[in-house]
Design a protein around this nucleic acid. Structure first.
Lengths: 365, 365
DNA sequence: CTGAAAGCGCTTACAG
DNA sequence: CTGAAAGCGCTTACAG
């Protein structure tokens, strides 16, 4: 009786009764089948509309064996990179008549499998998993799995049949090469801890560029941690504490790069004057931080769209490519510049005119 | 035959046959019913596990009338504020055994209704809509709707039964008052265009604080636009072009505040020395921009959690509060300071030592 | 063009 | 503790 009580939803039988036809006819009319007389169909639809009827997608799903739903699993919804990709997946899916079920994996392999399992129970038609920690292990499952899986930026070593990936090695190599061309010789790499495939590849690109330039890969300049602002801050502090700190830092992602910039500022260092910082991803925010971040763009929307297309093609059996490597794009902004250590004085200078926090300055007022 | 072909999933009948029991018993065993002999149950579960069986949640849903799914509609998944809230909803829902279906409304009322309709068809147990553009209009629907709706930050004028909202007026009033206390007299408001309730309320708080301080609300200092970085930039430019520009700017959200900061920088203005900037939301990024942004925190995770709790209570009939007003919290960081127009020279100074973009400086190398 | 019937894969009184 | 039966609300051959 109360608002919350589950009232038995009205069904096509109710509509059938009202329209004085069989429920089969109602079903057809609602699906715009050409098998039903035009006027009858119109009448049925009007009645359905007037009575606020909603076909049960679950009953339909049971009858047809398709739910028109795709499951999306991400490591963290709140991560801006993921959020942008998910947005484009939802759009692409919607345009093709699919809804999206979303779940968090927390970058935990076990949890990821659980979530995929729950999607299987819900009989989603297909699954997209971002930053999978399970990756190729799906193939052993695949044979038993009725539902196709497409991976975006697979983080597990080894190939997976259906995937869209950023081509990390050349992207990272280009980024590092750019820093070298700027004149940097001591270039640090801040990677992601935890055995992520993208980290392995980006580090490989970094190493490749250094070696091509005849520069050594120095252990002290390679640090790994959480790919968060805090992680970036800690990494930067550690690097700055070195007897001979780097003049440039290449970060696993924009988020940690922004943290690194903050740490530099807190030490009264000027980016890029005292140290250049390069990110990866090109988040929406990257062009609005100060200085705007030089980074490697991942075509986020494109990745989501392609993954959805591959999945949908799989679903309706049309042949298409099964996997795609997308190229990153170096986006030069203002967080990188030629090294000029002698310019330390300007940093000093900078500090002098830096604002103090209102809390502190309040006393002055 | 191919990988994509929909193979008929195995059912409890198959398991029943293998276990030599009726499918009723299998059903019970799988649901951990106490009605079934312990050893039999164990055996059944083992067989189910070994054969990689997944109960059909859609069949179960049809039989029970519950899908254990809640639908979440947001204006844009990519928006960091929404993403954070959605993340907490997913967590809270998951903890209570619910999955989440996600859809984009694009802040479009018609689209929002469509999406809600599609959720009704999918027989979600309940719906959470963020930044609803439809709001109270749901009540007319509610009577016919079998599915409860909870709103987060309803953007439509008027009350809605089930909602969690940030208490905009006092939050915005406190923010403005803080700027006044800092000594500002010309404080601009940059609002969100499009008839959003939160804008109306935040403006009301702004006005209230000014009036309480005996300051005039000047038309020229109130501008509205898109709540994006670009929107913030444009607003700032417009305000800076004023014969007598404001010394402080209060923005509808952090995103536009960050854009405003950028615009100030591009004019070689120093934040907060030349102009103070205040945001709203306290996005994760807010403490990492330079200078760290003074803002009003919305308890995003809390909002998502409370909304999910209200919804779940509604679903299992337990009584609970039906709506909540949450308080914002002024977070003072470094983008606000007392006005000191005479210090313009320092901005001038600042400009002199500003880094130039690598593109430009490349010539120097 | 229309209807009766079977079936999708579960759950759950009901009877034992 | 177990099974046979009915039912959830659709779809879709099949027969007319």
């Amino acid at each position: 009786m109360s608002l919350v009580a589950k009232k038995a939803a009205i069904s096509i039988k109710d509509i059938a009764r009202a329209a004085n036809v069989s429920h089969s006819t109602v079903s057809r009319a609602l699906r715009d089948s050409s098998l039903v007389n035009h006027e009858t169909a119109e009448r049925i639809r009007r009645i359905a509309r007037d009575s606020n009827f909603r076909v049960s997608a679950v009953a339909r799903g049971l009858a047809t064996g398709r739910t028109s739903t795709i499951g999306v699993v991400v490591t963290a919804i709140g991560d801006p990179f993921n959020a942008e990709v998910v947005e484009s997946i939802e759009e692409a899916a919607n345009a093709r008549g699919y809804s999206v079920a979303l779940a968090n994996s927390g970058a935990n392999p076990d949890r990821e499998m659980k979530v995929v399992q729950s999607f299987e129970e819900r009989r989603v038609d297909g699954i997209i998993v971002m930053s999978s920690r399970v990756g190729a292990l799906y193939v052993t499952h695949l044979t038993k799995m009725a539902v196709p899986v497409v991976l975006i930026n697979n983080q597990h070593p080894g190939e997976f049949v259906y995937s869209v990936m950023i081509d990390n090695v050349p992207a990272s190599e280009a980024a590092t090469r750019y820093l070298i061309q700027l004149g940097h010789r001591r270039i640090a790499y801040f990677g992601r801890r935890g055995g992520f495939q993208a980290d392995t590849e980006r580090f490989a690109g970094y190493r490749k560029a250094l070696e091509a330039a005849g520069l050594p890969v120095l252990d002290e300049l390679v640090v790994r941690g959480e790919s968060t602002p805090e992680g970036g801050m800690r990494a930067m502090q550690q690097l700055l504490d070195l007897p001979d700190p780097p003049t440039a830092l290449f970060c696993y992602n924009d988020t940690s790069a922004i943290g690194a910039m903050r740490a530099a500022r807190l030490r009264s260092l000027w980016v890029p004057g005292d140290i250049s910082i390069m990110g990866f991803d090109d988040l929406a925010i990257a062009s609005y931080v100060d200085p705007p971040l030089t980074t490697v763009r991942q075509p986020k929307r494109h990745m989501g769209r392609i993954a959805t297309e591959i999945l949908c093609n799989l679903l309706n059996g049309s042949k298409s490519e099964s996997s795609r490597r997308l190229q990153g794009e170096l986006i030069v902004r203002e967080s990188t510049a030629p090294p000029k250590r002698r310019a330390r004085s300007s940093a000093q200078h900078y500090r002098l005119i830096r604002p103090r926090s209102p809390a502190k300055s309040r006393g002055i007022v």
